[in-house]
Amino acid sequence: MSTQLQRSEQETDESPQEQRLERKRFDESEREAQRTEEESTGDETPYVHLKVFRYDPEVEGKREPHFDDFRVPAPQGTTVLDALMYARDEFDSTLTFRHSCRQAVCGSDALFINGSQRLGCQTQIQDLDQRPVRVEPLPHQEVEKDLVVDMEHFYDQMEAVEPYFQGETPDEEEQLQSRENREKVKMSTRCIWCGACQSSCNIAAGDNEYLGPAAINKAYRFAMDEREDDDIKQHRMNILEQEHGVWRCQTQFSCTEVCPKDIPLTEHIQEMKREAVKDNLKFW
């Protein structure tokens, strides 16, 4: 089944999504080429210099935000999360950050790495251009301690779009979805609630009530699901059409740029804007 799907994907022309991934891969290989001389010279383990944001309201002397430096071994394949864990385990056990799956699945370690929102576990040290590697908590969210930010507001926005399936379940029957419909929502289902997109969006930063890219993408995932009926879809559109809903997006593409799951967020937001326009134009 899955191989069939993959094959059918390859047969079609490259979708926008694939082209974008292609481009990302290209950037990646370019960066790798730049780095071959660096770090791999000599046969001893390469080290990386980390500059890590520190703040702890409960400890005298750490109440003023500052940066700590760590020199951490970074053999090929070391991720920023690996490096942070090394720093914590070997040098400073009070260094605090969230993590769990270490494989870009749980969404707990979105960080501001070298000026961009990325998952610590998905970002390899050798793919980063600047040294030292600067690790900061996500911007536009309050810092609780070190790299840990308050995610409450992000979760509130996600909850606001009712991020769960609301189709009628026929008795003892499967909820079948057409293959086309599954393809349509495929990318949108990949969200891991990491908050990187919300943090990168400076519209969201300026307007706390703006639903933000992740929530609108979540709404897209269900509004586009044909198994939900028209009433529910209308209800979902009503949420999106509010003043601080889809219209706030000004197509900066920052969210799409940073999303670790490569969800075409701006595309989905734009589609919801058009749905909202159609919903309000009554002459067809």
């Binding site: 703040y55 935000p65 911007p139 593409f253």
Partner: peptide
């Protein structure tokens, strides 16, 4: 509950080197 720290908007224009094309287009 302890105090949390708001870093404000300082990161935004300070990281202009990291801006992607869409951001420049917007500006």
């Amino acid at each position: 509950m302890s105090q949390s720290h708001n870093r404000g908007l300082i990161e935004d224009f300070g990281r202009w080197r990291e801006f992607a094309p869409g951001m420049w287009a917007w500006i």
